[in-house]
């Protein structure tokens, strides 16, 4: 599944004149710059002396000033260090939950025969289409009754219950592609379904597990709506909520510090992009993920 997606296709006939090729590259480079300009602007803006952000659209600051990062980090009553820790805690546990919960269900759907399988599978697919707004309010009431509001539990526990049906679907597709001979051999050796799941399916499914883990992490890290609803105490805020409070408290007065914290909030996602770009792009190309 790798080469079909990432390798560039040999040019058809290859009859493109050098001039057209230069023009095409020129246009693409200009366009790339335009696309990236806002992000580069935010990076350079965070490094400038505060008064310089306005009046120059250049990307090169006259001098590098890390003041924005210092002011931003401690700009709220609770430091961004706490927000980063909260975000990391939630994202890591939610990611593990998604991989564990979804792979268990996916294994049953892909490999085991049992009464009602098609029925449950159809229901699972049905939940893919259901907008979460429909379950939002009763879920909130449930977690409120359980005393989980203002804790990270509502953002973590549902993942262990495989509520992200999309990942189940993704894994079922992958598991079905693994040759059955492998688990047949294991069954002949007296292997239980649990050992087959643990010793055969999971090790052979690392690409799909990694894809699911990376997207889970990024989506949880970026999630704003969930934390907005469940976390009201500033000590429990995630980075995204911290940023939002920072916007509300500084308004438009300290863009340098706002940009500095915005940049930091993007660092984990950017690192995933840097190191797992191939998996991300394959994930989208083969499954049609939304972003």
């Amino acid at each position: 599944m790798t080469d079909a997606v990432t390798s560039s296709r040999p040019s058809l006939g290859g009859q493109r004149s050098p001039i057209r090729s230069v023009l095409l590259h020129g246009a693409l480079i200009l366009f790339s710059l335009a696309m990236l300009y806002p992000i580069l602007w935010m990076i350079s803006g965070s490094l400038r002396p505060q008064e310089e952000l306005f009046g120059s659209s250049s990307l090169i600051p006259s001098s590098v000033d890390l003041g924005g990062y210092i002011r931003g980090w401690t700009g709220l009553r609770v430091s961004f260090g706490q927000f980063f820790w909260n975000s990391l805690f939630i994202a890591v546990l939610a990611t593990i939950g998604n991989v564990v919960g979804c792979s268990l269900a996916a294994f049953a759907f892909a490999r085991l025969r049992f009464g009602g399988r098609n029925f449950w599978f159809a229901l699972m697919l049905g939940t893919l289409m259901l907008p979460y707004h429909v379950v939002l309010i009763p879920q909130y009431i449930l977690f409120l009754e359980l005393g989980w509001v203002n804790t990270s539990l509502p953002l973590i526990v549902p993942k262990y219950l495989a509520t992200d049906a999309f990942f189940i679907f993704l894994m079922v597709q992958f598991f079905r592609g693994i040759p059955r001979e492998l688990d047949e051999a294991a069954v002949m050796d007296g292997c239980s379904p649990f050992r087959i799941y643990w010793k055969i399916m999971l090790p052979l499914s690392l690409p799909v597990l990694a894809t699911a883990a990376i997207f889970s992490f990024i989506w949880t890290w970026d999630d704003f709506f969930g934390p907005l609803i469940y976390l009201n105490d500033i000590n429990t805020y995630t980075v995204q909520l911290g940023l939002r409070s920072f916007v509300d408290s500084t308004g438009s007065s300290d863009w340098t510090a706002l940009f500095a914290m915005s940049n930091l909030s993007l660092v984990p996602v950017f690192l995933f992009f840097l190191f797992f770009q191939r998996l991300l792009i394959e994930g989208i190309a083969t499954t049609g993920m939304k972003r």
Binding site: I218, W255, F259, S262
Partner: peptide, 14 residues
Amino acid sequence: LLGSSVAIAVLWRQ
């Protein structure tokens, strides 16, 4: 990949 984050919304405000 970055677009739905709060950071990019902040950037858009500026």
